[in-house]
Design a protein around this nucleic acid. Structure first.
Lengths: 200, 200
DNA sequence: TGACAATGTTACCGATCGGTACGTACTCTG
DNA sequence: CAGAGTACGTACCGATCGGTAACATTGTCA
């Protein structure tokens, strides 16, 4: 859902954007870096330079803001995930490995905070919570996409390979933030290649 | 005067233990099942059937209680992890696979909540927080133990194999609670065998 | 019996939580 | 210019957070 402005083609470039946008961006940054439960609405609006009522005009509740953050994360994630497709058309193996190799670097650097969606599942274990649901839906889409790619690789058992790779992926997200630099995330590419080669 | 039963020196075996023990056990259960940040001290003492002062006589703060919970978890974890050693002496590969096979079952069942230590790292990303530190220390010990086992397997590159297996392990913990029954965790054993066989 | 340690009871603290009633300033339109 | 509508801020709400003070009660052991 987007707030479309009518005429007035944007005064300049960006700085004093709408309150809702500032909230959205600030919340994204804070939720991801510090964790969702650790951040209160007060801190969000302060850092965004707006006030609480502005937040509650744009979102029904904090939970809705969280869900929106996760939907946003989901979208950005798949953008990153599918980005290598352009460089390696019709080569799902190369596409996947390209993403994994980039991820391995990010996840092995200091201050890495893992996957916002995975983190949300852990912060909100209650299956009824909107944050949990959005995150799980996203992960299910990822699983399905991986299966599709493994079928494209002509793996003997595409579903099994996809799940194995998903384990490596998720392991990389969490190990990245546990160990930081020089952590196990560095072997992601190698391990994935081993599994793929053994499955074709 | 009061309607509550008086002395009754332990009617059966264990029920009315010390307040500190009841708090410890209740906190363990609640922190693990619901998440640490989601559980307040009030809820802990209510469910434990004690009162807040009792909690603060046994622990300096909630953070200390959390750290203690994690140390407890660490101990129970390694107990489970090393349990198969008795059945497979001098066979690190069989030991590890035995643990993984059991884990795969647990992690693929409904309501699985993953590893309390991994969850704590995500709930407390701040490296200075005691919970974060205890959890990371435990994970580093696990990494070292895995390396030791991989050396025992005579792997070509034991550190690389250990890290690969650690990724699978952590992936299993988090995917277990994301997908529940029929999730990717089911392939843990197969994937681990593939990686081990390829590394010897 | 008396002393002591452990626990419960009650009532509170300041801070922060998510959330809102209501007033104000700007801008677009007639 | 008048008026409407939009966008935002000030000030506040009750609930809950982690944590504490003061005192009553209990079981144990000497």
């Amino acid at each position: 859902m987007s707030t479309r402005r009518k005429s007035m083609p944007a005064p300049a470039a960006e700085a004093p954007r709408r309150a809702a946008d500032r909230i959205r961006d600030t919340a994204f940054e804070l939720f991801y870096r510090e964790g969702i439960r650790a951040i209160g609405v007060e801190e969000i609006v302060n850092r965004a330079g707006v006030t609480k009522p502005s937040l509650y005009r744009a979102y029904e509740s904090k939970d809705e803001l969280v869900a929106d953050y996760l939907r946003d994360y989901h979208q950005r994630f798949f953008q990153r995930f599918e980005a290598p497709a352009a460089e390696h058309p019709d080569d799902p193996k190369a596409q996947l490995l390209a993403y994994l190799d980039r991820l391995a670097v990010r996840a092995s650097s200091e201050g890495y905070r893992g996957c916002g969606l995975t983190n949300a599942v852990i912060e909100y274990p209650d299956h009824a919570h909107p944050a949990h649901q959005v995150a799980v839906d996203s992960k299910q889409a990822l699983r399905e996409r991986l299966r599709e790619m493994c079928r494209g690789m002509r793996a003997r058992d595409p579903d099994e390979l996809a799940d194995s790779l998903l384990l490596l992926l998720e392991g990389c997200y969490v190990s990245g933030q546990t160990f930081g630099e020089g952590g196990p995330a560095r072997v992601l590419g190698t391990a994935a290649r081993r599994l793929i080669d053994a499955a074709l």
